[in-house]
């Protein structure tokens, strides 16, 4: 409250900066939630590529229907999604306005403060904002409907082929899941230490900038010390339980491609194919 930071506030700060990484999962157990994370990631990956091929109303409509339909299927309240998009709204609106004044194509529609606005600009701005919006919407669906652990498993599986080139796939996935696991722990730790130092007279909130930067040292040093200690303990505990790396290791939850995944993939391919057919080639 005064002087120290609560973990909730720290959490909010982190959420603001890493919108697409943590803290967004909304469990509604919809069909999208139950999908194989690999399929979800594949679809998103190719969606991001193919949306750039859309160039007329029909092809854009197809991609829009796909993204909005997917969102409806997740049963996640729009309120959550809108909230997740808050920081992006600004960018979308900004892009639109920028296009309005910079693009000079088509006929002049109106004059705003002496600046002509072209019909082509309106079109361009709308199209680019829409594309931007759709990209963010679909990618945020991944974190809204997939737990961090599932994402990690999916990444590990998708990157599997790279093992041939000595790429440490398993280690990468392990690092990802460990860091995700320890985010809340570190936040709690931060809150505790911040409280303790505030009690010893540190003021994190007021005073000149230089003072406040210096106030971070009593917070960071103990945090690093405890993080290293934790890492060492974790490594020891893993070894004590016989961890020997990814070689020959089986999984508790095997990822399996089900009918719904195939169905989603088929629908996606149809949408992309239809978009590719209907787009303008002139």
């Amino acid at each position: 409250m005064t002087g120290s930071l609560s973990s909730w506030q720290i959490w909010q700060v982190i959420n603001m900066n890493n919108l697409l990484i943590v803290g967004q999962y909304v469990p509604t157990n919809s069909i999208v939630h139950r999908m194989d994370p690999r399929i979800k990631m594949l679809i998103i990956f190719f969606y991001v590529i193919f949306i750039f091929f859309a160039n007329n109303i029909v092809s854009y409509a197809l991609f829009t229907v796909f993204a909005v339909g997917g969102t409806l299927l997740t049963k996640v309240p729009w309120r959550f999604i809108a909230k997740g998009l808050t920081p992006v709204w600004f960018l979308i609106v900004f892009t639109f306005i920028l296009h309005l004044f910079v693009t000079k194509e088509g006929t002049v529609l109106v004059n705003v403060f002496g600046l002509p606005i072209y019909s082509g600009a309106l079109e361009q701005g709308a199209v680019i904002s829409l594309r931007f919006f759709l990209l963010i919407l679909l990618t945020s669906l991944l974190t809204l409907t997939t737990t961090p652990i599932e994402i990690t498993d999916g990444v590990e599986s998708l990157l599997g082929p790279l093992r041939r080139f000595k790429f440490p796939v398993h280690e990468l996935a392990l690092m990802m899941s460990i860091s995700l696991r320890f985010i809340p722990t570190l936040l709690q730790e931060t809150e505790k230490i911040s409280n303790a130092q505030a009690s010893r007279g540190v003021d994190f909130r007021t005073g000149p900038f230089r003072e406040r930067v210096r106030a971070v040292i009593p917070l960071l040093v103990p945090l690093f010390v405890s993080a290293f200690k934790r890492a060492e303990e974790l490594a020891m505990a893993m070894e004590a339980r016989g961890y020997r790396g990814g070689e020959g290791r089986t999984k508790l939850r095997e990822l399996q491609v089900m009918k719904r995944d195939v169905a989603a993939l088929v629908i996606f391919i149809i949408v992309v194919a239809a978009a590719l057919i209907t787009r303008d080639y002139s």
């Binding site: 409280n195 303790a196 009690s199």
Partner: peptide, 17 residues
Amino acid sequence: LRKQVGIVFQYPEHQLF
């Protein structure tokens, strides 16, 4: 107030730096 009230938190050694 904080000068008047000293708190020894749980595992206070974690606050050493």
